[in-house]
Amino acid sequence: MGAEPVRTHRLVEEPTAGEESASLIRAEQEAERAEEMALMRRKLDGVVAFIAGPANVAMQLGWPEVGYGVVESRVENGRADLHPFKRFRTTIGYLGIALLGSHEQRVAYREAINGQHRQVRSTSESPVKYNAFNRDLQLWVASCLYYGSLDAITRMHGPLSREEELVLLRAGARFGTTLQVPAELWHRTPEEFRTYWEEGLDRIEIDDRVGDYLRGLLRVDLLPAPLARVLGPLNQWLNTGFLPEPIRDQLGLAWSERDQRRHDRVLRVLGAVSRPLPHVLRAFPINAMMWNLEIRRRLGKSMV
């Protein structure tokens, strides 16, 4: 008889407690991200970028430090009044990367925008002190974007459930973390956000210089004169309907109950039209501008 074959036994290493914990965390993060993406597919409407974008800028610039950081900006190629179409591409692309993009895309955008933010600092002649890397200011900007998203979604598609609102709030953190806001500074509950928001509105102070800039933005004065004359009144009316009352008042914008009813009706109609559309159409131009920035990144071009 031949000799018994020698059997070798492959040792299988059991995962350590640390590896199991890390695996569970990754699985939880992936599940949460899947929830966020599913909500975006059901609720994200790119048309809001056209009808509410300037209103959201007005909210952000309502804090004097943010307002003067923009109107005094020395970053010429990032100014909306000088390069409106480029600014639209980079701003809407940022929204897409924050809400729909990968971690790699978000890191690349953060590095690109940091180069511009380093130049945004107050001078001895500035009426207020500001620094684009100030996390409190960035948190306000991110919170305005979240408020605008929540407002448009609920007015176009009806109130969110408690669970949906929590998912949207969690996704909204990416508006801040795509910049310099640490995740732990983001609002933990809808109630915490609402308290922050009301306190933030109390800080709104729009002087003549920032106000003139914002009123021009609402009238789309930055477009060629013929386009501005045609689109300006409608754009101002649509955006005024998204502004909280304190900001409307400080900008001297009239708004009646009739205006509010008409605005609500327009948003309900837009929501009814958009809901049956496939996500790729509903998310336009947010997804298109995100893809544009991704193409520029892969080609080695500036994203901002």
Results as ranks from 00 to 15, higher is better:
157 H>C: 05
109 Y>E: 09
110 R>W: 02
125 E>Y: 15
41 R>F: 04
55 A>N: 07
134 N>I: 06
121 R>C: 01
64 P>E: 00
157 H>N: 14
156 M>P: 10
127 P>T: 03
106 R>T: 15
36 E>I: 05
83 H>M: 01
128 V>F: 08
37 M>E: 14
70 V>M: 12
93 G>D: 12
57 V>A: 12
108 A>R: 11
32 E>Q: 12
96 G>K: 05
129 K>M: 01
94 Y>G: 04
39 L>F: 12
86 K>L: 03
113 I>C: 07
57 V>N: 09
92 I>C: 00
104 E>Y: 04
92 I>D: 00
65 E>C: 05
144 C>T: 15
41 R>A: 01
138 Q>T: 05
25 I>T: 12
109 Y>Q: 15
77 N>Q: 11
122 S>A: 09
134 N>G: 08
113 I>A: 10
133 F>G: 08
89 R>A: 03
114 N>K: 15
117 H>N: 07
50 F>Q: 08
137 L>N: 15
74 R>M: 12
59 M>L: 13
106 R>E: 14
97 I>S: 09
20 E>C: 13
59 M>I: 09
80 A>P: 00
83 H>L: 05
18 G>R: 15
91 T>Y: 02
130 Y>D: 00
80 A>Y: 14
40 M>T: 03
154 T>H: 08
17 A>P: 13
97 I>D: 06
154 T>F: 05
132 A>E: 08
142 A>S: 13
52 A>D: 04
159 P>N: 04
49 A>G: 02
